[in-house]
Nucleic acid binder design. Sequence first.
DNA 1: TTTTTATATTGCAATATTACGATAAATGTT
DNA 2: AACATTTATCGTAATATTGCAATATAAAAA
Lengths: 108, 108
Amino acid sequence: MGATKTDHFTERQNQIAKIAKALGHPARIAIIEYLLKVNTCICGDIVNELPLAQPTVSQHLKELKNAGIIKGNIEGTAICYCIDEKVIEILNDYFSKIILTVTNQKCC
Amino acid sequence: MGATKTDHFTERQNQIAKIAKALGHPARIAIIEYLLKVNTCICGDIVNELPLAQPTVSQHLKELKNAGIIKGNIEGTAICYCIDEKVIEILNDYFSKIILTVTNQKCC
DNA sequence: TTTTTATATTGCAATATTACGATAAATGTT
DNA sequence: AACATTTATCGTAATATTGCAATATAAAAA
């Protein structure tokens, strides 16, 4: 196997899992932190920031884009990347609700 | 390859990625949502809630436990599982900060 | 003690992910 | 046009993940 049975779960569950999965790699977290640090969309330059080869970084960027976490605008030779707040907001709302429920929980 | 180069990233980046990765599967999201729904630690019963075989569920529970997202207390024959708010709080804080930074960002 | 019930572990097949060298594609520069 | 620069894609090797049947383990119940 190795293939996730996505059709057995709700769309919402698959959505959250997809976003979380895209964030489930330190290189992709590092990319996001870099985009936050420069505090603007950055054109080029991401490859030099990471300890990985250019095709690997490109692949990670593709996955972040695919999950809707970042967006890229072509700007001449380079591509401008920035974080798409919409998706981060979805995650944030989701976990906020979890926190609320959990803290009201009578538990072990 | 297939192995993540964790030693090239900060401990923090690896920590966030690890938690996110554990949440990156719809079955594990479904488990968490079930734990929230019953609103208490649940003994047994998780297997019947999911459209997956018992060993598969056991494996997903193990991964959630390994990431610190849930904790399990042995209670006779069954095991009581519940969400560990500490880890969810780490994620929530992390994404809250991202949201704050992103919304202040002048971007494409 | 034997049986039942609940969960974990093992072993395996199918598929996915990670990483990178080589190469392609696209655009700006000379 | 020829070249340089930047990012994407292809191909491939190593490893990880997913899922389940079979089996093991552990504790309660009979």
